Computed example of a mutant assay.
Amino acid sequence: MHDNQPRTITPDDLPEVITRYLTAHRAHDTATAVTTFTDDATVIDDGNTYQGSAAIERWLDRSATEFTYTIHLTGAQQTDATRYIATHHLEGNFPGGSIDLRYQFALRDGLIERLVIEP
């Protein structure tokens, strides 16, 4: 059984809410980015967990200003009806200078319920 095996999709096939989040995140548009999450969403990034809209908004603000970097979407996968992975290549002035990160999204009611960012 391979029901939960991620299936490669084109970035254009990512759900609109994920594309809207990624576009807003790249543009440092926190106001738009935060609207893509459910009120009780969870984000896990850099070993930290951010729960709820206010915490996610603070995380978005900080991640937009902490480092300067470019981000390129290099791949996309769909795990099941509500789970997607968007792989990004980042280069910038953060420790290490470049990294590939997997943004793992879980959707609920057309919004992002959970986002886990990890190498």
Rank of each mutant, 00 (worst) to 15 (best):
D80K: 07
P119F: 01
H2N: 12
A86Q: 03
P95H: 04
R58D: 14
H89K: 12
N93E: 14
A76K: 10
Y103K: 05
I44Y: 06
A41P: 15
P95R: 04
G96H: 00
T87W: 09
G110E: 05
G47N: 14
I44C: 09
I112A: 02
R108L: 11
G47H: 09
E57W: 02
R108W: 15
A86F: 08
S63F: 10
P11M: 04
I44Q: 06
H72V: 11
A64N: 12
P119W: 00
F37H: 06
G96M: 00
T74A: 05
F94L: 01
T65V: 10
W59T: 07
V17F: 04
E16C: 00
A27G: 07
G96I: 00
P15L: 08
P6M: 02
L73P: 06
N4P: 07
H89N: 14
G110W: 12
A27F: 07
H72Q: 13
T65K: 11
Y69K: 03
Q51E: 15
A76M: 11
H89D: 09
H89G: 01
G110I: 09
T10F: 10
H88C: 07
E113T: 07
L22M: 14
I99W: 01
T10E: 12
E57A: 04
I85G: 06
I85S: 10
R62M: 14
L73V: 13
H28R: 11
D100F: 06
H72E: 15
V43H: 04
T70A: 08
D29G: 15
E57Q: 02
L73T: 02
Q5A: 05
E91T: 04
A33V: 08
V17T: 03
A106N: 04
E113F: 04
P15Q: 03
F67M: 05
P15R: 02
E66S: 10
A106G: 07
D46V: 08
P11L: 07
T8E: 13
R102K: 06
D45H: 06
Q78W: 08
A64H: 15
R114Y: 12
D100T: 08
M1D: 05
R83N: 13
